[in-house]
Amino acid sequence: MREQIRQVIREHGHLAVDIDGLADAADLYQAGMTSHASVNVMIALEDTFDVEFLDSMLKRSVFESVDSIAQALTEVGVPA
């Protein structure tokens, strides 16, 4: 799952650095992901994993790292 998440971030996150150089716990916003890019990451994640995030999950903190995204995907039923 984490590799697919990384691929989505690579395509849509517009990071200032290479995602391969970041740990799973690294802060994506500090790595240059904007609010606008984070929305595109959310949309691409829903598409890739065929899920819908709940409104309660649609906030900045849930999408701040590969780890937090993985946890959110697990919560909406994606097998770890």
Binding site: S35, H36, I43, F53, D55
Partner: peptide, 12 residues
């Protein structure tokens, strides 16, 4: 512009 982006993903 911000709202247009958020509306793409927000549910209710």
């Amino acid at each position: 512009a911000t709202d247009a982006s958020l509306l793409l993903i927000a549910k209710e």
